[in-house]
Design a protein around this nucleic acid. Structure first.
Lengths: 324, 324
DNA sequence: AGAACTTACGATGTACGTAACGATT
DNA sequence: AATCGTTACGTACATCGTAAGTTCT
């Protein structure tokens, strides 16, 4: 019986990975742990099966997607997503309390906001292997979209990424930190209220653009027509504090990043009146099926986010979500 | 190299078909044109792969879905739906003007509402093979959900089926038909307005429950506390007219079903004031990808339903399951 | 010359159908 | 006894990797 070879998942994976790897089949083969001719074949087989060329070829090189390819790629991604969902659902029912949970977060979140949640989660779910990835908000979004992370946590960017569902976890403000004995510390001790104009007279040390509410900082200065000198920008609250201790400049960090005990060499000055409030958000990929313990983790991190709240957000309108 | 056999579509099809066929693997094998041991194996393989029993077994007989099975079946169906979508998209780009379009409609629609649309569509799209299926609204819904029909057209039921997207095509009312010379015809000719009470004095011939606005007819009589005798109920407007001609009773049919020329032996009496207006709807399966000519057909049938209108409806509120 | 994809080929193993078996009603 | 699902088995063919080939940079 001459059975026609049907569409299969390996073909779909090859197509998806080819797009992800920038149309380099050699890299695709590596990423999929297979041979390069194999990938070439998978793609051709799928194209044959569908009767359409998915990729633009210049000679034998792949350059991009054809219009049909562009139209069909989302379907391919949904297929692979659902396949992943099915596997996860299987794992969930097979053993609710064992598995892998990958959380991607910015440094600030990983270092200051997550530890207690991680500790509590580990106690409640000892069978779950927790992977904590660190990256920029953009990288976090990417990891979520590619299925390399289950949960993303960051203050910036995530809410604007189509394909992600985000929910607010907590709100926070910035705080200004200076070495003990710094002029600003004296002024504060003398009862003088800190202003943006005064702050702008010092070189500043704060987050890189795209991190931890940096936008709110820039916006605040811009609104008053100030252009402070940024002496140093870092992704990392600890790095910022270190350089502030060294006297490089005045630090502006997330308030969660200051601990009176541990950072005794630094003085924190209230800056709630200077910079807009930030909202840290948790994000998951839109059509991803989440393990039960993933909901539990989110709930542990942000008690307001019960499983029901998250599930409702997952099913809601694909467009922009309604506010905070 | 010992490759682990991955999940494949044949396994998924076996699972879906097993549910559809009422858990009889012999029938499943027949439906899938394969051997029964094959189906048995496919299911076991998938269960192994997922690590979960999907089916409840009494001895060696399958009785139903386990809770995990119930949870995972929708994912399986989405997978197969997307696979189908991918194939269709391929066919679409390979050749926009060739393919198959299956329209399921009630008799009344097929016989009276569709002919001009079908004629125009065939002229505009000669390469498309058109299949016209006939059935009750319930059967039409079933066919759509199982992917056996692309477009469904009926007045009843469709709008209430989760998993279907429906759009209004046109509105119509019932008309009363009697043989020429019938008492009601005389009264009408004499300028007397027809009432429900008068109508209820005759045996009636009309649609079966579940067809062509029968509900509106029952509701109208019920509202006035009348319980007319239904001499004959049929799915089919032509059957009704035939028996009215024979003098079995007074007919109540969809107004589209009366043609002054062809039905010269019958007299139609306006009944717009007696029965509520009906809306005939077109339905498609929620997450189905439609061929371009399917949109064209809908547009031909109901000019207000442009491709954009239909697409917007398809993307709207999921209703039941978490949409794709 | 080198990088990138395609073609060719051969071995491994996977998949499917037939047939025999076991259990259930 | 009949129906239904599972197990066993042999063959056919599908898949995949290696290696050679071709084209473009």
């Amino acid at each position: 019986m001459a059975e026609l070879p049907a569409m299969n998942f390996q073909q779909l994976r090859s197509v998806r990975e080819t797009v992800r790897q920038g149309y380099n089949l050699t890299q695709v083969a590596e990423a999929l742990h297979t041979s390069q001719p194999g990938v070439s074949r998978q793609i051709k087989e799928l194209e044959d099966e569908l009767g359409v060329e998915l990729f633009v070829r210049a000679g034998r090189r792949l350059l991009g997607l054809t219009p049909p390819g562009q139209a069909m790629l989302p379907i391919v991604e949904r297929l692979l997503q659902e396949a992943e969902n099915l596997k996860r659902a299987g794992a969930e029912f097979a053993d609710r309390e064992h598995g892998l949970l990958t959380v991607a977060a910015t440094h600030t979140q990983a270092r200051y906001a997550l530890p207690t949640a991680v500790r509590d989660f580990r106690l409640a779910h000892p069978g779950v292997t927790l992977h904590l990835q660190q990256g920029s908000p953009t990288q976090i979004a990417q990891q979520l979209l590619e299925g390399q992370a289950d949960i993303g946590i960051a203050t910036e960017t995530l809410a604007e990424v189509p394909g992600l569902v985000t929910l607010p976890c907590y709100r926070w403000t910035h705080v200004v930190v200076v070495p003990a004995g710094h002029a600003l510390a004296e002024e504060a001790a003398a009862g003088r209220t800190l202003t943006l104009a005064r702050l702008a007279q010092f070189p500043l040390v704060t987050y890189e653009p795209g991190y931890a509410g940096r936008r709110k900082i820039d916006a605040a200065f811009a609104r008053e027509g100030l252009a402070p000198e940024i002496a140093l920008a870092a992704m990392d609250t600890d790095v910022i504090k270190t350089y502030v201790e060294l006297g490089i400049g005045v630090g502006i960090i997330a308030s969660v990043g200051y601990d009176e005990q541990r950072d005794s060499s630094l003085v924190a000055l209230d800056a709630r009146h200077l910079f807009a409030v930030n909202t840290t958000r948790v994000a998951v990929k839109r059509n991803a099926w989440l393990r039960g313990y993933a909901y539990a983790f989110i709930h542990t991190f942000a008690p307001s986010l019960t499983r029901e709240v998250v599930e409702r957000a997952l099913c809601a309108e694909p467009g922009q979500d309604g506010g905070l």
